[in-house]
């Protein structure tokens, strides 16, 4: 009975997940039919003209997440090295608990702070580059960096603590200083775990909706000529999530192609976050073994 129930509930859960993937594939079929590969490579999204190219949104999603990662990674690794390698155990736990608590701050609260403070800071700070407004890819990236910081700190800290203390003691016995031990023993040993921390944080950044929605500007079709143009970071943009969270989701239902295009965006997002999460957990797993 217990066994049958366990299996039954598991199958319900697995069925729901299968249904989830199935729904996105099936419901997005019309747009693949309508656009073909142009759906991914197209650079123009004008729903009134039935033109659905998602490249600028894929660009926006990736750039915003990368900005967040570039900003949060050094800070997060630094903080994790400090908690894992320098703090006594009790204090370390306290700091870690504090940071993990703050990982739970809801994204709508971050969004509110983004509207109130961050937009204006970015706008004034980068004034000489003449951003048109405070709603930029950079604003969203910075906000996301704060949001994923706890994830990076706590997972990196775990990875560093996973390095055996016997190795550390041996290194110190060989005359290495504390810093040398950290840099030449702990960090290389923990590198898979650190990589996993980055990937899982990236997954969170790619999928974050509400906070990004409120500060990214939601400007369609903004694709710079050069992919790595830094100036473009100070323009407004659109991410997959900000599009999905916006008014088009309500308008689109009922129109097969338009709705397919919206669901297709969710499918693209699912593939992106799925890949990153899978890579991340794969990475983390092997470091344990």
């Amino acid at each position: 009975m217990t066994r049958a129930l366990s299996w039954f509930f598991s199958f319900v859960a697995l069925g729901a997940v299968t249904l989830l993937v199935g729904v996105f594939v099936w419901q997005s079929l019309p747009v693949w039919h309508h656009e073909g590969w142009h759906y991914i490579t197209g650079t123009k999204w004008f729903f009134r003209q039935k033109e659905f190219g998602t490249l600028p949104m894929i660009y926006g999603t990736v750039i915003v997440a990368l900005i967040a990662l570039v900003l949060a990674a050094p800070l997060g690794f630094g903080a994790a090295i400090f908690t894992a390698e320098y703090l006594p155990r009790r204090v370390r736990l306290a700091v870690k608990v504090l940071i993990e608590l703050l990982a739970g701050v809801p994204s709508v609260v971050y969004g509110l702070l983004g509207i109130l403070l961050l937009r204006d800071w970015i706008y004034n700070l980068f004034e000489k580059f003449e951003p048109l407004s405070g709603d930029t890819l950079l604003t969203a990236g910075v906000l996301l960096a704060v949001m994923i910081l706890p994830t990076i700190v706590t997972l990196s800290d775990d990875a560093l603590r996973g390095v055996s203390s016997a190795q550390r003691r041996a290194a110190r016995g060989l005359g290495l200083t504390h810093a040398e031990t950290v840099l030449s023993i702990a960090l290389p040993q923990a590198k898979r775990g650190l990589g996993a921390a980055l990937l899982l944080a990236l997954g969170r950044a790619l999928g974050e909706t509400i906070a990004v929605f409120l500060v990214v500007g939601r400007q369609d079709n903004n694709l710079p000529e050069h992919v790595f143009s830094l100036r473009a970071w100070l323009d407004a943009g659109q991410t997959i999530t900000s599009k999905l969270g916006g008014s088009e989701t309500n308008i689109a239902y009922g129109d097969h192609v338009h709705w397919g295009a919206m669901v297709g965006l969710a499918l693209l997002l699912l593939i992106m976050t799925g890949t990153v999460t899978l890579l991340g957990t794969g990475f983390g797993k092997r470091s344990d073994a």
């Binding site: 407004s133 405070g134 709603d135 400007q219 369609d220 916006g246």
Partner: peptide
């Protein structure tokens, strides 16, 4: 394609700042 705004307060807030 311009940056888009939704609600009235959002519009006023963004324009004023």
């Amino acid at each position: 394609s311009f940056p888009e705004v939704g609600g009235n307060e959002e519009t006023r807030n963004k324009v004023s700042s």
